[in-house]
Amino acid sequence: MNFDELFGHLGQHTVDGLAKGSIYALVALGYTLVYGVLKLINFAHSEVFMVGTFAVLGTWSMLGATDNPGFGLMLVFLVAGLVGGALASGATAVAVERIAYKRLREMNAPPLIFLITAIGLSLVLSEAFGLWQGRLIVGMPTILPQEVLFTIGNTGVTNTQLLTVVAALVMMFALDQFINRTRYGRGVRAVAQNPDTAALMGVNKDRVIMLIFLLGGLLAGAAALLYAIRYGNTRFNVGFLLGLKAFTAAVLGGIGNLRGALLGGLLLGVVEVYAATLTSSNWEDVAAFVVLVVVLLFRPTGLLGESLGRARA
């Protein structure tokens, strides 16, 4: 237990954790949105994220991205990567809904069946990429080289960390406003509260469900871009562990609760970095899992409680 290291550089580890957690939070939003409306764990969401990382890579190599481009080109690559990743992930998420869930919803199948179909589909997606792109880690060009922007005390904040956290907060805020203030958002909240009544009030349930899958996919695509910037590589099974963590984050904050997903993601990132500092990075996955079990034991509805529209309907 390396307490000296943890407390000596507490700020640094916290910043690292927040940056890590931001990516979890963005993916967690996808789980939370779908769960809030359909009461269903979209197990295939992790592969939606994985498709996003490959789409970012594809976009960059199509544009001929290289390491350390100038500032102007960097912006172009970032925007193109965001668009490419978000579009690919969004399309994948909607396709997952159409192929795997629509028919089951019509059959009123029990939740277990949804979960198993989703597992099958995520296996298909990751294996398809494994066969297509190979099973090794695929490197990406370093679009945004890490450098320390400013330091507070002994805590240095790098540009990628700042970008990751700010991007996550901005997207989170935008989504929150969208759900709480717009017409479409009202539809989403209505279906989350009571699908049948919402349908009677003229909400197109099918379209709302497609919308939430699309939103979740877009956010996963954005997370994929941030992941690509931060880690600079991807792999056919990159989604599995990240998806598990993101789901943990969603549960931690209270699944179905958008702000909870953000809180849970950031918290999980920080806990993991602390645990890795205290022991070794081999144990960070164990820490994430232990946190999940402990939270579920004492607060089964998560830190902020489950709600999508229920709390402030």
Partner: peptide, 10 residues
């Protein structure tokens, strides 16, 4: 396996 799972479930 994945395809089989999806098809059987559907």
């Amino acid at each position: 396996f994945g395809l089989a799972l999806v098809l059987v479930m559907l």
